[in-house]
């Protein structure tokens, strides 16, 4: 397939990349390219200059800090997340979720930054990063800022990034003492597009003390379901109370309908995946 004529540049540093993004109207960063290539082929977005950031060492590091938090460079691939001992040490669930993204070829190229910046509602990592309370590190030629993950996803294919800004890394805090995470997804086929999915982080100290329950594919961006979270807090960590809490998911959601499921089907299945994600997070099975 022949693409529209485009300029390509491989900067030697993040600073250089940021300068190129600022000084070229129509410039876009190119990381793993597993979505952008198709966007260029279908000419649904017009890009004049591709700034290839995929091999910048500064964006490819995974740092594990003494407090157990990790900072993952935006151009770390899914395969690297899966293999990273630093990730597996305290955030095994990230490695697991990354290892189930599509196929080997895509996992070898696709990046955590791309998965977030595309803001495709079917993407795997955004709901998990919201459940884990991540912070997005953003830089531009003019400075840097930190964006709480819940403020990062703005809509279908829309993020909080301004023109000229680059997501450089994602910081994920250690799980609080007594907390665990869970993730469950109903997919069209194995390791493929999600019909609906859920991620959760739940802290238990005899009773459930804190709960973050995220639903994806029921709204333009992944959302926390406050009703279910509130129903969980104070409840015993049992299958019965998780089921009762999941039943708060209902008419408040207006999920999209498509060939893979009606709005009502997604609403029903949201209850199921949320229950499974929370059950995993309280150590009662479930997951995926």
């Amino acid at each position: 397939m022949l693409l529209k004529s485009v300029e390509y540049v491989r900067p030697g540093s993040v600073d250089e990349a940021l300068h190129l993004l600022r000084s070229n109207a129509g410039a876009a960063p190119l990381a793993g390219g597993q979505s952008l290539s198709n966007i260029l082929k279908h000419r649904v977005a017009s890009v004049d200059v591709l700034v290839d950031i995929s091999s910048l060492d500064e964006l490819r590091e995974i740092q594990r800090r003494p407090d157990g938090s990790i900072e993952v460079g935006a151009c770390v691939t899914y395969d690297e997340l899966d293999r990273s001992l630093g990730v597996r040490a305290g955030h095994e669930i990230i490695a697991r979720v990354a290892s189930h993204i599509e196929d080997s070829q895509i996992r070898n190229r696709g990046t955590i930054g791309g998965n977030c910046c595309l803001s495709d509602p079917t993407n795997n990592l955004p709901p998990l990063l919201i459940a884990l309370d991540a912070t997005m590190h953003v830089r531009s030629a003019g400075g840097s800022r930190r964006v709480p993950v819940e403020e990062f996803f703005k809509g279908y294919f829309l993020t909080a990034l301004e023109p000229g800004e680059l997501l450089t890394s994602v910081e994920i805090p250690a799980l609080p003492a007594g907390a665990r995470a869970g993730y469950a997804s109903l997919n069209v086929a194995a390791d493929s597009k999600a019909i609906v999915r859920s991620a959760a982080r739940v802290k238990v100290n005899e009773v459930i003390e804190e709960a973050r329950v995220v639903l994806a594919r029921v709204a333009p961006v992944p959302i926390r379901h406050r009703g279910m979270e509130e129903a969980l807090v104070g409840a015993a960590p049992t299958a019965e109370s998780v089921r009762a809490a999941a039943d708060t998911i209902g008419e408040d959601l207006e999920p999209v309908a498509d060939s893979h499921g009606s709005s009502e089907y997604r609403r029903q299945m949201a209850r199921v995946v949320a229950r499974r994600a929370v059950l995993e997070a309280i150590g009662q099975g479930g997951g995926m």
């Binding site: 397939m1 693409l3 390509y8 491989r10 190119l30 390219g33 597993q34 290539s37 198709n38 591709l50 290839d52 995929s54 395969d79 080997s104 070829q105 895509i106 070898n108 190229r109």
Partner: peptide, 19 residues
């Protein structure tokens, strides 16, 4: 179109030649 690039399996229709 799968090929092995720098030891990693990739789909060669999902990369540009200069990459």
């Amino acid at each position: 179109c799968s090929v092995i690039l720098n030891g990693k399996l990739v789909k060669s229709c999902m990369l540009l030649a200069p990459q």
